[in-house]
Every structure is written in structure tokens, then in C-alpha cells.
């Protein structure tokens, strides 16, 4: 399986993890002030940031930068 396939599967896993079926009615508090459901999703935000950081490390579209740069190809307003 190539890099993009692995990234896609991890992305799908993250989508499933977002649903968080196991904490739905858990009213316990983390650190004495944050409901579990909120704590889980706050951590999820950090995991999302980490995931995209890794994606950019391993699959950054370097060729796009060069492609973006001939002057006579411009046609916009």
C-alpha cells in the first residue's frame, strides 16, 4: 500500500474516532472540572493537528510550488 492509501485509512479511522460512541453518557470530570466528553474532543483536536503535521511531513506536494511559478500563462483579471 502506498503512502496516500495509508493516510486515507488513518483519516477514516479518525472520522470513526470522532463519533466517540463510548463516552456518550459519561458525566465524569477530568482534572475535576472538564466533562469527559469535552476532554475527549479537546484531545481529538490536538490529535487532528498532529495527524496533519505528519501528513505534511511525509506527503508534502513539493512539485506544486515549482508548477505554480511561465509569465505568459497568466490570464486572470
Amino acid at each position: 500500500m502506498n503512502k496516500k492509501g495509508i493516510i486515507f485509512i488513518v483519516f477514516l479511522i479518525l472520522l470513526v474516532l470522532h463519533q466517540d460512541f463510548w463516552n456518550w453518557d459519561n458525566a465524569n470530570l477530568v482534572f475535576g472540572f472538564m466533562p469527559v466528553g469535552l476532554f475527549y474532543h479537546a484531545c481529538y483536536s490536538l490529535i487532528a493537528a498532529l495527524f496533519w503535521g505528519i501528513v505534511m511531513k511525509v506527503a508534502w506536494p513539493t512539485e506544486l510550488e515549482e508548477w505554480a511559478e511561465a509569465d505568459d500563462s497568466r490570464e486572470g483579471g
Binding site: 510550488e65 508548477w67 505554480a68 511559478e69 500563462s73 490570464e75 486572470g76
Partner: peptide
């Protein structure tokens, strides 16, 4: 990239 290349 597309916008920069074609001036959109």
C-alpha cells in the same frame, strides 16, 4: 498553485 500560475 493554480491561481498563482494563471493569475486567477
Amino acid at each position: 498553485a493554480i491561481g498563482k500560475r494563471y493569475g486567477y
